[in-house]
Every structure is written in structure tokens, then in C-alpha cells.
């Protein structure tokens, strides 16, 4: 029990830190360009999503906090199903995995429905650097013009941010 408490304390501490970590980006900036490949090996550019509100979820199969957040994102994605179908909202999962098989296995296991992209460069990813990511889990919400609406928001704050903008 004592050990469990310590772990929870540490995890909570990490989560708080993740929420307050610094970033090279700020709200109102244009989101850095992202030209990578999706999980089906097709080219993907963030510019393709112009006109939509986009949640870019930076995650990895080895990131415990990220994996725990996926079901919450799935719930949000289903709630916004109409906006997704109308082309107003999308989630993009950017994986910091190094091995594609690990990434694919996690996507399959969690049945993540939104598009998945990666440069498969782990922490050496130039995209991770461009977005100023210091720790996972990390996300960015961008508006229809590619401008940043929110950085590293989670839970109800994230949900509120997206829904407020869409409404």
C-alpha cells in the first residue's frame, strides 16, 4: 500500500509537471509544419487539415500516461463524431515510437480510430523538437487556420477548449 502510494504520488507529480512544462510554442502561434508518413506509409501533411480544428496528440506505446489517456480521447472523439464527419474536427496521433511494430500493436490494441502519423525517431524527432516537447503526454490544439488554440491541455480542460471553439 505504501509503495502504491509512492507510485501514485510520483505519477501525479509527473503529470503536474507535464501540464506545466515549458514549450517553445505559445497560443496564437502557427503550428509548425508536419510532413511525415502515416501508419499506412502514406505521406501526411498537417496542411491537409486546414479548415478543421485539430488535436495533435503526441504519444508513444511506451508512455504510460499517454496510453491511459487514449480511452478519454476516444470518448471525446465519439462525442464529436458529427463534427468529425462534417470535416470540422480531427485528432492526429503523432507517435514518438521508434519501432513501427510497437506503434501498430498499441494502435490495434486500443482500437484508436483517428489517423496516426510518425517519423519513428523516438526523442530525436525533429517534429518533437519543433513543438518544444519536453515530456509525454503532450498535445496541441490548432484552429481552422493552423493557429495554436491550446498547449498541453488534458481532461476536462481539453474537452472544454475544443467544444467551446467548435460551438
Amino acid at each position: 500500500m505504501k509503495n502504491l502510494s509512492i507510485i501514485l504520488l510520483l505519477m501525479f507529480g509527473c503529470f503536474i509537471k507535464a501540464n506545466t512544462q515549458s514549450s517553445t510554442l505559445k497560443v496564437g502561434d502557427l503550428a509548425p509544419q508536419m510532413d511525415v508518413f502515416d501508419i499506412q506509409n502514406q505521406p501526411f501533411s498537417l496542411a491537409q487539415l486546414k479548415g478543421k480544428v485539430v488535436l495533435i496528440d503526441f504519444w508513444a506505446s511506451w508512455c504510460t500516461a499517454c496510453m491511459k489517456e487514449q480511452p478519454l480521447l476516444k470518448k471525446l472523439y465519439h462525442e464529436l463524431d458529427e463534427e468529425v464527419r462534417n470535416g470540422r474536427f480531427e485528432i492526429i496521433g503523432f507517435s514518438l515510437d521508434k519501432k513501427k511494430e510497437n506503434w501498430q500493436r498499441a494502435v490495434d490494441r486500443l482500437e484508436i480510430p483517428w489517423p496516426q502519423v510518425s517519423d519513428l525517431q523516438f526523442w530525436k524527432s525533429p517534429i518533437a523538437k519543433a513543438y518544444g516537447i519536453q515530456m509525454l503526454a503532450f498535445n496541441v490544439v490548432i484552429d481552422e487556420n493552423g493557429k495554436i488554440l491550446g498547449i498541453n491541455q488534458h481532461g476536462e480542460d481539453l474537452e472544454q477548449l475544443i467544444k467551446d471553439h467548435l460551438n
Partner: peptide, 11 residues
């Protein structure tokens, strides 16, 4: 390893 802080590292 360096994926994440020690408390969360599986490796």
C-alpha cells in the same frame, strides 16, 4: 533508457 522519468520507465 531515457523514454521517461525513472518512476514510469518500464525498461
Amino acid at each position: 533508457c531515457g523514454c521517461c522519468p525513472f518512476a514510469m520507465c518500464p525498461n
